[in-house]
Amino acid sequence: MMTTSDHMSAPTAVLRTVVLTVGLLLVGVAGLGVATDGFHAFTTETARRVAVHRNPPAVPATVPLVNQDGVHFTLADLQGKWVLVDFVYTRCMTICTVLGADFAQLERELAEPIAQDRIQLLSISFDLARDTPAELASYLTRFRGAGPGWQAAIPLTDDGLARLEDAFGITVIPDKMGGYTHNAAIHLVDPTGRLVDIFDLGQRDQVRAALQRELAS
């Protein structure tokens, strides 16, 4: 018959191992908890959102932009309104198309507050090399948006674009076919110019609900 002598040989080593293992587990799990904002954010993208919810950052108000009509402006000019921002490049046939369709739909659904000048939709292009006001205008026309409620714009300088990308948490990687891989989301900026929320593609209903809630209060 089998006797259980396996653990008898070194009781202190067993005890030490148990203590060390439990310690490691506690430290490790706590560390992982910190590294994931309490197990909520496994990806950079989610981390960004968690951070935005906790402490809404101010968006760079002074970056010079030019819109589809060639008009120069900055984000500071939009203060006092709720601004929905997305990042696109006009030749993009994948994600940006979805974003464009979402914005067009939102422009229709939110026609009333837009008419009252309380909401602004803004698509910012990160393709400084190719996009021009004319390209932006045709991008808007493609989605039959184009009213004053939805503007498209390009930053005038690389540095300005970098500051915007940094503030909104946008990563853009050129792919090998002359296009870009980039993260797509709808960003909500409040009337004081703070980034207060980030929504996924396909969360149009949530965007609308959030805005209606804010405007009602």
Partner: peptide
């Protein structure tokens, strides 16, 4: 969604 922003 892309889990890492730096990769496609």
């Amino acid at each position: 969604i892309r889990l890492c922003n730096n990769y496609g």
